[in-house]
Amino acid sequence: MAYNLNINGRSMTVEADGDTPLLWALRDILGFKGTKFGCGMGLCGCCTVHIDGVATRACQTPIESVGTSEIDTIEGLATSEPGRRIQRAWLDLEVVQCGYCQPGQMMSAAALLTETPDPTDEDIDAAMSGNLCRCGTYNRIRDAIKYAAHLDATTMEDAR
């Protein structure tokens, strides 16, 4: 059946079973390849998107459950100010290694900053522990979140 999804501010139609995880609708049907697959069980955070601003695992989100909620993917991250801060910080602090987990990390981090503009270590632990990184970039992710929180947005260069 057909579902209308609101993705990065645009309405898009997906023709699939209602129990299809949003992750695969994004990746395989709509072509948003930035959202990654790592576990399919809500254990790794690679597939993190924002649904109405909340960091959500797309692999655990059937398309029939989304309704008219706003879905934001990594492709739209730079349109929000916290998103731009996070991407800038990720570049300035050289966070990435293989990079595969990083879209999910950045989505979780941007949601954290939106909610908590100046997060403590405990806030970061709570928001980020659902995102695995097998390359072990955690120290830099933590530093980059704090750095992003204190970036001067007016002088910030676009990460792209």
Binding site: E94, V96, G99, Q102, P103, A159
Partner: peptide
Amino acid sequence: KRLDAPQKVAA
């Protein structure tokens, strides 16, 4: 700076 970082940050 890593040359592959911009692409990876932009996903």
